[in-house]
């Protein structure tokens, strides 16, 4: 499956990755190349095969409902780009 500039625009929006107009054609080409590789999968009949999300047939272990985390706000926010009054700052969120 080949992708075009409009696909790239859509993907760019979904993934929040900016792609300039100049780079869009090249991005479309290289992604189309990857998809061409991937399209080999379509030739195989997998009608009776269940998808495998995980290599091991393991099941989830559950954790006891016990508080184990202490407040480390100061440390966590020491690596944050913008904080005020203990809050992470972002450009105004408009709902």
């Amino acid at each position: 499956m080949a992708v075009d500039r409009s696909d790239i625009a859509k993907l760019s929006k979904l993934a929040r990755i900016q792609i300039s107009d100049e780079a869009a054609d090249e991005a479309a080409k290289s992604i189309s190349d990857v998809l061409a590789l991937v399209d080999q999968l379509q030739a195989v009949n997998t009608d009776c095969v269940l998808p495998m999300a995980h290599p091991l047939d393991a099941v989830q272990r559950l954790r006891a409902d016990v508080v184990t985390e202490a407040n480390q706000r100061e440390m966590f926010q020491s690596i944050a780009p913008a904080v005020q009054d203990g809050l992470y700052l972002v450009p105004q969120v408009i709902e």
Partner: peptide, 10 residues
């Protein structure tokens, strides 16, 4: 208003 910003509490 944090000077035009929103504050995030997680």
């Amino acid at each position: 208003d944090f000077a035009g910003m929103s504050g995030i509490d997680l």
